[in-house]
Every structure is written in C-alpha cells, then in structure tokens.
C-alpha cells in the first residue's frame, strides 16, 4: 500500500482480476531483493495490465499499444542506472508487440518484463489473443478459436533472454521469488504470469468466478521438471491443457546497455553521458 498512489485508488480492475495480486508479488520480490522503489522506473503499453504502473509511486511511461519494450530500451540505454520494469499483457507483448519482445530478448537488455497472460483482450471486451487456448471462446471466436497459441516463455528463451520463468496467480510466493531473481538478473528477464480475467475469459469459458479460475490454475499447473520428464518419457499427451510453471532459463550473458556504455568509454575515454539534455555546454 505504501508504494501506491493512494489518490488513484480503488483501481479500475474488475473484481478478482489477477493484476493486483501480481503487483503485490512484485513489491514482495522487490523488497526481498533489497531494492528501493526509487530506483525503479516502470513502462507499459496498452491493455488492462498496462494500467498497473499508473498506480505506483515511481516514474512511469504508459505508452502506445505493443511498444512498451521499445520505450524501455531507450530509457535504459539513456540512463543505465534506472532499474526498468515493463508491465505488459499477452496482446500487448505477443501480438502487436511481438517483434519488440523477441528483439529485446535477443539483445539481452537489462529489463524486467512482467507479462500478465490472461489469454484474452480484456480492455476491449473479450477478443481472443495469441495465447488463447485452442477451443476457447472469445467475442471474435464465438465458435472457439482454432489457432495454436504461443508458448511465450519458450519463445522468449529461444530469442535469447537470460532469465525466464512462468507462474500463475495462485502461486504468488513462487512468483515473487522469480520476480526477485528477475530484478537481480543483469539481462533480459521475462516473468510470464498466467492470470485470470473472470469478466471476459471466465464467464465465456465455464469458469464463472475468480475462485473458479484460480482453482483451475491450481489443478492444471505442473512443474517444469515434471513436465520435462513426461516429455522425455514420451508422455507429451499428458501435458494437454496443463500450465507448465517454473524457471525456463537462468543463464547470464553479455548485456546490451553495458555494451553501449563500454563502447562510449572505449571511444571517448569518458563515462557514458547521462542527463546531458540539462547541460548548457557540451564538449564537441
């Protein structure tokens, strides 16, 4: 509560929306990593989850649909001292912003991206998204979607991220622990949170209440190690309808903004310029 802009509460999220739980888990992870909110700048795109930074007492950019990660790239390179956190959703990050997501992972830029995957477009009233499970109902898939969904965490691992984890909103402790690790990782960190949209996903897909939704997460969540073993044993079919949770990668490698700063240092012999817009005189 002490981290929130009290003059903006209550938030606009529907009853039982997972966004608030994820925000709580974020603060818990941040505190346990010993990070002060003052060091953090938040960036988001468009969608319900992208409204989160507006409630937090820190500098924040609420940007255009899908583009949060590109704004965050400029912010981080412009001032590498900022701890930049991106809140995004499945439509924002994986559909309209998919290209920025994979390129940021490729660069391994030190951002912590929290992707709230509720498998639906909530803000616009329940259209299917690139992560909607096959067969699920949305207003734009009234007979059930036949498209194959993205496996976001696997996608981001393949693109080169150095820390990737997936949890659901019913595992807030594991989630905050992963957020702690993500904040600590000096590279591109992606934490996917499978979350509930009771209003637009649940009601259309026989999970009428927030409690029904989180219960289904609890029933279907399977740990990555267990899932890997099933795959190794040729029992992949048993994973249909399951949500694989856990860490997908945790492997450090060279980071983008460090590379940019080091190049400056090499070429001009001085530290990378920050906040230089405020100077009235610069050496040419």
């Amino acid at each position: 509560m002490k981290y929130l802009r009290k003059d903006r509460l209550p938030n606009i999220f529907c009853p039982g929306c997972g966004n608030g739980t994820i925000l709580n888990s974020f603060f818990r992870g941040m505190e346990s990593e010993g990070i002060d909110l003052k060091e953090i700048a938040m960036v988001s795109g468009i969608g319900c989850s992208s409204r989160i930074p507006g409630y937090v007492k820190c500098d924040s950019l609420h940007t255009t649909h899908g583009r949060a990660i590109s704004f965050a790239t400029g912010l981080k390179v412009g001032n590498p001292d900022l701890n930049v956190v991106v809140f995004t959703g499945d439509g924002d990050a994986a559909s309209i912003g998919g290209n920025h997501l994979i390129h940021a992972a490729r660069r391994n830029i030190n951002l912590t991206v929290i992707c709230i995957n509720n498998t639906i477009y909530g803000m616009t009233g329940g259209q299917i998204s690139p992560t909607s499970p096959e067969g699920s109902i949305g207003t734009t898939a009234p007979y059930g979607t036949r498209d194959k969904p993205f496996n976001l965490s696997e996608l981001v691992v393949a693109a080169g991220a150095s820390y990737v984890a997936r949890w659901t909103t019913i595992q807030p402790l594991q989630l905050s622990n992963s957020i702690k690790k993500a904040l600590n990782n000096p590279g591109f960190s992606f934490v996917e949170v499978v979350s509930q949209c009771p209003t637009y996903f649940g009601r259309k897909n026989k999970l009428r209440t927030p409690v029904d939704m989180v219960k289904s997460f609890k029933e279907n969540a399977i740990n990555k190690r267990k899932a890997d073993k099933l795959i190794a044993d040729g029992k992949e079919d048993e994973l249909i309808g399951k949500i694989i949770v856990g860490e997908f990668i945790n492997k450090k490698r060279a980071e983008f903004s460090d590379n940019v700063c080091n190049l400056s240092k090499q070429q001009c012999g001085e530290e990378h310029a920050t906040k230089s817009a405020y100077l009235s005189k610069l050496e040419y």
Binding site: F13, P15, N19, I170
Partner: peptide, 25 residues
C-alpha cells in the same frame, strides 16, 4: 494480503511477533 488484488487486506503482525517473516524467503 498477497493475493488480494485490491490491496484491501492488512494483516498486522503481533507486537512481539513475526517481523522477520519477509526475510525468510
């Protein structure tokens, strides 16, 4: 407290109590 999406719940620790709770994870 952690799950409450609307930050509506406050659980106060006992005065003697579990202040160190946060550092245990």
């Amino acid at each position: 407290e952690l799950i409450c999406p609307d930050q509506a719940i406050t659980v106060e620790d006992d005065k003697m109590g579990n202040e160190g709770d946060e550092s245990n994870d």
